[in-house]
Design a protein around this nucleic acid. Structure first.
Length: 423
RNA sequence: GGAGAGAUGGCAGAGUGGUAAUGCAGCAGAUUGCUAAUCUGUCAACGCGAAAGUGUUGCCAGGGUUCGAGUCCCUGUCUCUCCGCCA
């Protein structure tokens, strides 16, 4: 959620920047500023009336004490009008605030200067590429075939237990996944992140805090019996840890990492591109969240990108980094880099990580602030990134590391898996 | 799941209808010849004001009664104790 005072100060610049997202903000900004004016003038009137009514109450109390019942009763009559007025005004006040809130929720984050204009993923800009795409033999298989051949993942079994998109990992497949989780968490804690374990179910308030609600309600599994939501990403519980907090400056930066399963309904996405591990209803992910001072956020964003690069480099997997264009940028993000792993057998790129700076957009909704040097309260910047989404890393790993003899496990993982080959 | 008790500022803790004591911590200022003491000020949100200031709101949340609610009534949430169940 954008801050009204910033919209006021930078209206034209924001409008221009939002065009990169193909979002026409002019009208909605006018409405927001108008409602903000209304809200303030209404508050002035309301405060005045309440002030009078408080004064009268005090007088009445005093008169009763002194036994001047008649005078007190006279004053009581005067409060009736004030009461009616204040009811009307406070009703107006809450309507205006609600309308204002609703409009603010509709405006996406203002893209960073470096974000290219564009319609969709076609317009994303590749900024980095690394790792050799292996030359595979004619016999190379996509990961779902490999998973079957080596009995690593059973997709049909998941259908039986739950439904499509809930695979069962088996044997070395399960072990490989566990190894990757441990490896990622170790890399993250080495880099200074503190490891947490968080709830997989969140309440409505948390959903609003990070922006999954109200827009993306249909993407989350809703546990109606207790009115809770299964997390679509651990960003939700992690970032909500600091909801409504006023942090001390010395506490920043806060760096958190966690491993959780993620649950997404993915309604309406079926077809060839969702085969195998490409798109699941339940998948594992190791996440990074940073809560930082505004002046450091872009430096931290770069560090996160370097950190994820380091992991992929060690795994020796071919990947590229994209700077997302305005049209592909998530609603809450100011700047996002996507990491894509090349899936050799499928001959396509798979998104395995997304690293974003939300600036104050989430912090404003979540009310995460800190006291700066001048003792002024200021919103923090929040950032998050995956490190990494497990199923697609496994898909790419299986496909890229396959040989005629079997699947060769990357060296750095061997201490975690306890085996070098899947044969 | 059943029964009972409770929820007040960063923390501790008073307050049963008249407008939130007090203590500790933190921060700021003053003062005293130094790891400290003492005194004063200092909660948050939203406004108004050029500023000094100043108004409103906030005692778990949401409603209600009242001229006036931390206090009374209704609903919900959470915590604690006991019982039941249980990895």
């Amino acid at each position: 959620m954008l801050e009204v005072k910033n919209i006021k100060a930078n209206k034209d610049a924001y409008c221009e920047a939002l065009k990169k997202r193909n979002f026409d903000a002019k009208e909605i900004f006018d409405d927001i500023l108008r409602l903000d004016e209304e809200r303030r003038s209404t508050q002035v009137q309301l405060d005045e009336i309440l002030s009078q009514s408080n004064n009268l109450s005090k007088q009445i109390g005093q008169l009763f004490k002194e036994g001047e019942t008649e005078k007190a009763n006279q004053l009581k009559e005067k409060t009736t009008q004030l009461k009616d007025d204040s009811k009307v005004l406070s009703q107006q006040m809450s309507e205006i605030s609600e309308d204002l809130q609703e409009l603010l929720y509709q405006v996406p984050n203002v893209p960073h200067d470096s974000v290219p204009a564009g319609q969709d993923e076609e317009d994303n800009v590749e900024i980095f590429k690394e790792g050799k795409v292996p030359e595979l033999s004619k016999k190379a298989l996509p990961h779902w075939e490999l998973a079957k051949k080596y009995d690593l993942i059973d997709f049909e079994l998941g259908n039986k237990i739950t439904g499509a998109g809930f695979p069962v990992f088996k044997g070395k497949g399960a072990r490989l996944q566990r190894a990757l989780i441990s490896y990622f968490l170790d890399k993250n804690t080495e880099a200074g992140y503190s490891e947490l374990q968080v709830p997989l179910l969140v309440n409505e308030e948390s959903g609003y805090g990070t922006g999954q609600l109200p827009d993306k309600e249909g993407q989350m599994y809703h546990v109606t019996g207790d009115d809770l939501y299964l997390i679509p990403t651990s960003e939700v519980p992690l970032t909500n840890i600091y909801r409504n907090d006023l942090l001390e400056e010395k506490k920043l930066p806060i760096q958190m990492t966690t491993y959780t399963p993620c649950f997404r309904r993915e309604a309406g996405s079926y077809g060839a591109h969702v085969r195998g591990l490409n798109r699941l209803h339940q998948f594992d992910k190791v996440e990074l969240v940073n809560v930082v001072k505004p002046e450091n956020s872009y430096k931290v964003l770069d560090e996160m990108v370097e950190h994820v690069k380091g992991i992929l480099k060690e795994l020796k997997l071919p990947y590229r980094i994209l700077r997302l264009c305005g049209g592909d940028l998530g609603f809450t993000s100011a700047l996002t880099y996507d990491f894509e792993l090349y899936s050799t057998a499928q001959e396509r790129w798979l998104e395995i990580s997304s690293v974003s700076n939300f600036e104050t957009f989430q912090a404003n909704r979540l009310k995460i602030r800190y006291k700066n040097k001048d003792k002024k309260k200021e919103l923090v910047h929040t950032l998050n990134g995956s490190s990494l989404a497990l199923p697609r890393v496994i898909a790419g790993l299986l496909e890229n590391c396959q040989t005629d003899e079997g699947i060769k496990i990357p060296e750095v993982l061997v201490p975690y898996t306890g085996f070098e080959w899947i044969k």
